[in-house]
Design a protein around this nucleic acid. Sequence first.
DNA 1: TCAGAAGCGCGAAACGTTTCGCGCTCGGGG
DNA 2: CCCCGAGCGCGAAACGTTTCGCGCTTCTGA
Lengths: 335, 335
Amino acid sequence: MGSTIKDIAKQTGLSIATVSKFINGGNVLPENRALLEKSIKDLDFEVNQVARGLKKNRTMLIGVIVPNFESKFFMRVISNIENSLMRYGYSTIVCDYRGDYKLEVEKIHFLYGKKVDGIILPPNEDNAKTYKDIIKRGISLVFLDRPIDAVPCDAIIVDNRAAARKAVESFLANGHTKIGLVNMNEPGLYTAHERLAGYLDAHEAAGLEVDRRRIAFAATSVDGGYDATLSILDANSGVTAILATNDDMAFGAIKALNARGLRIPDDIALIGFDVYDVATVFNPELSVVVQPLGEIGETAADLIVKRLGQERPLSPRVVELKTELILRGSSEKSV
Amino acid sequence: MGSTIKDIAKQTGLSIATVSKFINGGNVLPENRALLEKSIKDLDFEVNQVARGLKKNRTMLIGVIVPNFESKFFMRVISNIENSLMRYGYSTIVCDYRGDYKLEVEKIHFLYGKKVDGIILPPNEDNAKTYKDIIKRGISLVFLDRPIDAVPCDAIIVDNRAAARKAVESFLANGHTKIGLVNMNEPGLYTAHERLAGYLDAHEAAGLEVDRRRIAFAATSVDGGYDATLSILDANSGVTAILATNDDMAFGAIKALNARGLRIPDDIALIGFDVYDVATVFNPELSVVVQPLGEIGETAADLIVKRLGQERPLSPRVVELKTELILRGSSEKSV
DNA sequence: TCAGAAGCGCGAAACGTTTCGCGCTCGGGG
DNA sequence: CCCCGAGCGCGAAACGTTTCGCGCTTCTGA
């Protein structure tokens, strides 16, 4: 029950050093190998990773920090990160900071204490100094979902701008010209900014004027999407299509349209973001922009593991993955 | 950058032992206290939890193991467990075993190596021996979502049987007598068994004969729910209402009903399980049985922390939480 | 004034591992 | 036959903490 390297040494008559060598793949005489294998099985010995971590200064632990545990997007990405890191022998400690950036700093210090080998997080400009500190301490850092200007660092992002642009262009292709945007209202949020830019890009490319009444910002939630959608409808700008840049906001948009008795897509066409499991359950099925959650997690894991292995600090790698626009019934009726 | 207790000792001129004492809340002379506080801030010292863990034989780490990372129910419960444990100063290491019970044993051994103080998992009968081993090693164990007969152990569950019964009774109250059940098909799955029992209870209490054609088992997934629902419809037993015992299966049921052109609730009334965010986005809104995810997480955390504190092994505590039946449009039209 | 108690600080060992470098053995080649 | 090198095993120190018990100081009270 909880035997140590010492017990193995005692039982085999070998020294602690030799046992350790064997455990770590070193060569030992065949007869000793047999002895050791038997003894390890007998006492069901397992390396004490805590002791090893202390000695080697590597814990095989990666910290992941997210704003909160409510975000489906981040939770799924975390699942995939955990899954991928596990294959490399790493485990994950997950923290949230309930949207409080001061608390994020605390969590980072908490992870310092845990001696994690690396940290993965979606950065915000406010804590740029802390991120630099992480790197200075020799802890590998990977940014999730967005880069920040102030800190050059590995990052895994998606082509938000192109994604929004393509979604709007699909509306245009179906003859829509009065297109609404239900966007996330978080100051400085990279993804919101990029998706807006994509929306504007598409308009500019089509030579279409942008009507600000058709753009609404609101809290990233079902209620936020609901309110934003109503405000667009109430602006009476003749909107015939809406792009919602977040799954919850897309749900809010559906609720708002239902509440107003507007049919999808006949009265208003709709495309959402990040709606995964249930997009096809709606009637008509919901068109969506999907981010490659699996790849995002894998890439985050790859980036951090690669950096961990490296001795020399390599220059920051920013990986941008492609989103996919999946068109279904909710946006497929032409005007 | 990564200073230790030794650095503090050197800078303050005090001994290592005194620094340690201070860190752990021991009394020191006021002048020394000031010195220590200053020095700790100066060098921004943080206790090395790895070293502490080695010495104290407590890592403040709890392992959580789930069958896979796809289950929304478990992922949400994990979020809440993490959140609650964090308040007690514990962190969480999450593993999955992709439905492979042999792999679950490996993950448990992996957690042995990490020297976790406790483990939380949904048990299965196959690995009863391993669970006993966990307890024998002095690692606290809490069962999630279900107990098993072979191992007496703390557990957090919900009133699955009553939940299903109440859902069926709400159908009965609306005049339905031909009620379908779309159930999860996993051998030995406690929750599936209990929910079936509740379904049967309600029938028996109402003096209603059970028609086996109205009960279908299938994979716990959207497709499974879809297939199961179609099979019930195709049995031509005159079903007018359906209870789906899982969120994905409820989605599958909706898809199946849409596919057949059946209206909810006019043609078929529907109640789902565990549909949280989007239940009110459907039109009509979906009636559901909800499990108290927050409380489940908190209670799991409480149970394990309580057991961790205890010196003496107390007798197993099984906490059963109440589910809530929320009736909405999808089940509210009488026949 | 002095004995004793209370409070504080310190040295040293210990937790379980890795790692360094030395010394031994054994075999092969000159 | 002897020397040298390769290969293996071992002792000891180290990672950063906690903890034990002893010894010193200081204060209280008779």
